[in-house]
């Protein structure tokens, strides 16, 4: 656990220290939200290579070897592990009902350590992270930063990830060696399971796009925008809506 904190801190420090000294000429950046594009691209290329060499083959093997019901069980467990954070963030955003549903799902599924979803029939809670909490309190999203290993996010979301990690409820069990080892393995398990679940989507982004960096950034922003808008019941037009609203169909 301490090791995880250490690596995350180093990653955040590396990213921020390198980005702070290499913002690029405004004409050369492709998006105003991304003033550190030059450095971000270098870290993205590093992450891309890391994915090609390590994560992609592991995810391919995982998809091939692990039977589908076992994969579902692992996905359920990864989801269950995130529920305490979900409860805390729902409460911080005064979404009391979601906080209650989230803690109920956590408590009931604790009987199977989350591997079997005993509340399949009930509607699952909406996922809330600390980035959404900061957005709820009006903290601006800040520039886009790409971190080694964890990928590209807004600075608000990046800081939120660190806080999410630090306030991880499982840290209360740090004294217990077995739980400590199990929780240390969590980020690895959730990364592999996420990559395997999104195998085709990520490979499409990597191999079919003209500029994988820009496509990844666009996908992140669109997805994040939708998440924050729908959670806060804001009905602002999406980028696609604006694109077509402003499109002159003549000529």
């Amino acid at each position: 656990m301490i090791l995880n904190h250490f690596f995350l801190t180093i990653a955040v420090f590396l990213a921020f220290s390198s980005t702070s000294c290499s913002s690029v000429d405004e004409d050369l950046i492709s998006n105003k939200k991304d003033p550190f594009e030059n450095t971000n691209r270098k870290i993205f290329a590093f992450n891309d290579n890391l994915d090609t060499v390590i994560l992609e083959p592991i995810a391919a093997g995982y998809n091939k070897v692990i039977p589908s019901h076992a994969k579902t069980a692992i996905n359920n467990h990864v989801y269950w592990v995130g529920l305490p954070n979900n409860t805390i963030n729902s409460a911080l955003q005064r979404k009391w009902e979601n906080a209650a549903i989230s803690s109920l799902h956590f408590t009931v599924n604790a009987l199977t350590l989350g591997f079997v979803n005993l509340m399949k029939e009930d509607e699952p809670p909406h996922q809330q992270d600390f980035g959404q909490t900061l957005a709820f309190y009006g903290i601006s999203e800040g520039p886009y930063v790409v971190l080694p290993v964890t990928g590209g996010k807004t600075s608000r979301h990046t800081i939120a990830e660190v806080i999410n990690f630090v306030i991880n409820p499982y840290s209360a069990f740090r004294e217990d060696k077995t739980i400590d080892q199990a929780t240390s393995f969590q980020p690895v398990l959730s990364t592999i399971s996420w990559r395997a679940r999104n195998f085709e989507l990520v490979n499409d982004l990597k191999y079919n796009s003209l500029d994988a960096y820009v496509r990844a950034r666009s996908a992140y922003y669109q997805n994040r925008f939708k998440k924050i808008q729908s959670d806060n019941n804001i009905n602002a037009p999406s980028e696609a809506d604006s694109l077509f609203d402003n499109l002159d169909t003549e000529g």
Binding site: S209, V214, R215, S218, A219, Q222, N223, K226, S238, E239, A240, L243
Partner: peptide, 8 residues
């Protein structure tokens, strides 16, 4: 999944 291919 809410990601517009055209915007990207």
């Amino acid at each position: 999944e809410n990601i517009s291919m055209l915007v990207a």
